[in-house]
Amino acid sequence: MLSLVIWISVILVAVILFTIYRVYTLVQVAKGKQDTRDENNTTWNATMGMIFLIGGIIAFFWYSTKEFDNYTLPVASDHGVITDNLFWITMAVTVFVFVVTQILLFYFPYKYQYRESNTASFYPHNNKLEVLWTIVPAVVLTLLIGSGLKAWWDITDEAPQDAEVVEIVGYQFAWASRYPGKDKQLGDADYKLIDVDNQMGMDFSDKSAFDDFLPREIHIPKGKPVLFKIKARDVIHSVYAPHFRMQMNAVPGMPTQFWFVPNKSTEDMRVELGNPDFNYELVCNKICGKGHFAMRYLIVVDEPEDYQKWYAEQEPWLSQNPDYLANVPDNLKEVAMISAGM
């Protein structure tokens, strides 16, 4: 019944609107007013443009200042400070151009709106002006590119030798991480060795794998370079940690990497934000299927000494899964037991 009433009222409203339209049209016809050059019309639209312009610019600056703390995430990595700077420099340039051009774009139609008595000026070109606004953007862009490329080369340069290595693997729909263990060497892995328990496909014929450990969350030390070695098991994922301003796709069959220096520990950030529950999050940022929006992983940034302590406490995966000793070649079994502390 209710839906019937709704439908009837919708139809009624449509009919009323249509009738108004017909009456309006007929009145216009009767008045003989059919010229699109009607000056009232022109004034109305030109004024709307100005209202939109002024209202829009006020709303833009009002909201941008009011919500500033909400839409800017605190930055927690060395290179992030640099890219944030670049971001805000670019923002200053673009906001300036944006405001000036939009003002001209709506002010000119207002000022030069149609009047029968007016004549437009025949002004087909002006080489000086055109050269000017080719060169000025070119110069500004060159400066922006220059600083951007410097940052890009530094960020994508080879990781320092002493970087802490963490392997991150994305799969539908979670993340896993692996640390090299005491020998600081990640063991070999092969996707064909993956099974229900051995999620990383660790190859235990390689002795570097014996002491590798798989924690439930990523720990990294503050102030030290960290190298994420990134892999994907099934489809493309993307390792995105917004606070560190780091992102790199995880591609099946093609290991990728990203290194950076975290400069605020989780504790620092909790104090800064006044939020005792704060945690750094790692999210997936490449469409990967139905669970794409739920691939959450935690990153904990420790003070370096806490990190060392945590690192030393981790048990090698092999010692937690002794069944896999069977996969270790006989001549290495003993080494494996020692490395894994069994």
Partner: peptide, 10 residues
């Protein structure tokens, strides 16, 4: 610039 000093019909 095309808008500048035109006689603009909306």
């Amino acid at each position: 610039t095309t808008l500048w000093r035109g006689n603009i019909v909306f």
